[in-house]
Amino acid sequence: MGAYASTETMDTFPLGSIESRIMDQARPATELDDIDGLVRTYRARILRFVTYSTGDPDLAETITQDTLLRAYRGRENFRGDCSVSTWLTGIAINVTRDHMRSVRFKFWKQVHASSLDVQEMASFLPGAESSPEHQMLAREKIAHLHEVLKELSPNQRTVFAMKFFEEIPVNEISEMLGMPVNTVRTHLHRALNAVRARMGDSQ
């Protein structure tokens, strides 16, 4: 399992176990030891990933907080054989799965589900100095891309976000999600086909 074993076994290793203490002694201080810095550096990134993965920004906030807390508490499990960002993404995936499995989540999802507001997000378009026409075209593109992502399955969206936002290589995505490389590749191909179908030649 290599780099991501730590994220999957985190819940099975009680904190303070002999293994953890040995690892803690051996582990040099990292940015994971500073929770304020961790939040400052990675919260927005995780929030975005989880928002795309779940399609629900409110739920994403909760998952993001849980992810950072779990990462901080289990920081001795970080072996440094992948980037902190990738490690956090792995934890976010596990936390998201936990939330999705819970009965309470299923109930809550039926009662209340917030969705990503495309117009709100489009208002954050960079390059305010560009022409109004250019801005309008860019907004349209963002809206189209969001429509595409919305129609993808949760797995496809997660894989898409991991690949194109987090820039995680396909083989690592495969390891993190426990999916064969070809399945990851198929998810990405479907996502790209959907983008192509919606955006036409402009993509």
Partner: peptide
């Protein structure tokens, strides 16, 4: 280019949203 546009926009949105989030319940 399209992906970069989405990447930058979504990241800008996320930064603002994250800044408005409640304080972390720091251990």
């Amino acid at each position: 280019a399209n992906l970069q546009l989405l990447d930058e926009t979504s990241m800008a949105w996320s930064r603002v949203r994250a800044a408005g989030m409640a304080e972390m319940p720091v251990p």
